[in-house]
């Protein structure tokens, strides 16, 4: 079947099997390998992308179900050569070690900050509870998201 969806602002049309999962569509058909593929059971959260602004686990949604919607992946977080504050926060606060969970956490964090620009650490921890880090790096991840909250992108920076 043919699916058309917008990914990071660009429209793509591809022929897929109905059983193709969104994570494989993004990685294998579109070459957007920033979205990682982990547990395959919607537990670990490394495959988190945004659909119409909401984070979802792309291993548990069909590409066919995403057709007609707006997808945003980690590759779409940077705007015109400027890193998103969440990405800058991870650099500033050393929010990653191996980096496998990082794209998923960042897509969840971006959603959190869009609806709540000044979350406390408890809110951040609850929000990223579906994104598992096995480097035991939550302390720095929470600090990284707090850093992003304290350094929102200025008008000119993302233009």
């Amino acid at each position: 079947m043919q699916v058309t969806m917008t990914v990071n602002g660009e429209e793509f049309t591809r022929e897929v099997e109905p059983r193709m999962l969104l994570v494989h569509f993004l990685r294998d058909d579109l070459g957007l390998t920033g979205t990682h593929w982990g547990c395959d059971t919607s537990n670990c959260g490394v495959c988190t992308v945004q659909i119409d602004g909401q984070p979802v686990k792309s291993c548990t949604i069909l590409a066919a179900m995403a057709a007609g919607h707006e997808i945003r992946t980690i590759e779409g977080l940077e705007q015109n050569g400027t890193l998103d504050p969440v990405q800058q926060g991870f650099m500033q606060e050393h929010g990653l070690q191996c980096g496998f969970c990082t794209p998923g956490v960042m897509m969840t964090a971006r959603w959190l900050l869009d609806k709540n620009p000044d979350p406390d650490t408890e809110t951040i921890r609850e929000c990223i509870s579906g994104n598992i880090c096995r480097c035991t790096g939550y302390e720095n991840i929470v600090r990284a998201i707090r850093w992003a909250a304290e350094h929102p992108a200025t008008e000119g920076a993302s233009a």
């Binding site: 984070p55 979802v56 548990t60 609850e126 509870s129």
Partner: peptide
């Protein structure tokens, strides 16, 4: 129930 991301779906 599950986590915030799963609860979105």
């Amino acid at each position: 129930i599950a986590d915030p991301i799963v609860r979105n779906r």
